[in-house]
Amino acid sequence: MTRISMTVDGVRYDDDVEPRTLLVHHLRNRLGKVGTVVGCDTSNCGSCTVLLSGRSVKSCSLLAVQADGVDITTVEGLAGRDGELHPVQLAFHESHALQCGFCTPGMIMAAVDLLTENPDPSDTEIREGLEGNLCRCTGYQNIVRAVHAAATSMRTSVPSTPEAAGAPAPSMGEEVTT
């Protein structure tokens, strides 16, 4: 067992884990963060995408121990404390960018990351920027539309700092040890 500590969606967790535990399983099974899902075993589908220190990663391809000491944002931590949706979440809803919704948590996190780096991406930049996330339902077209819409709303409503785009909600000062 290895002792790790990480902040997930603003809450700090300290746990002993088996080194072989994948980050996504730690999130789902130990921390109850079941909003992040697993769709493959070869790092291809991106359903498990979370932000690690603000950048997108595939949480199925990291060990929980590799995420010791870092800040993680999952789809569950994206909305504001009052439940106000993140512009990317809202845009996915408005643009009908999801059907079954299984790819959606990962897709949203990947889009948040993309917009952090490129606040005004072209169609091609969006399509290539999301190449690590597979969706079997939508054909991607409405996802591309949603990312454009989110980009526009983020550019016009909030300063385009990394914090505004992708950083986790501020810590609520809770500590959880399991």
């Binding site: 790092s43 991106g46 995408t49 690690l52 950048r55 997108s56 990663v57 595939k58 391809s61 990291l62 990947a110 990351d113 993309l114 920027g129 190449e131 690590g132 996330n133």
Partner: peptide, 9 residues
């Protein structure tokens, strides 16, 4: 190489 997520790590 790969995709954004993989390139970050």
């Amino acid at each position: 190489v790969a995709d954004r997520q993989v390139r970050h790590v």
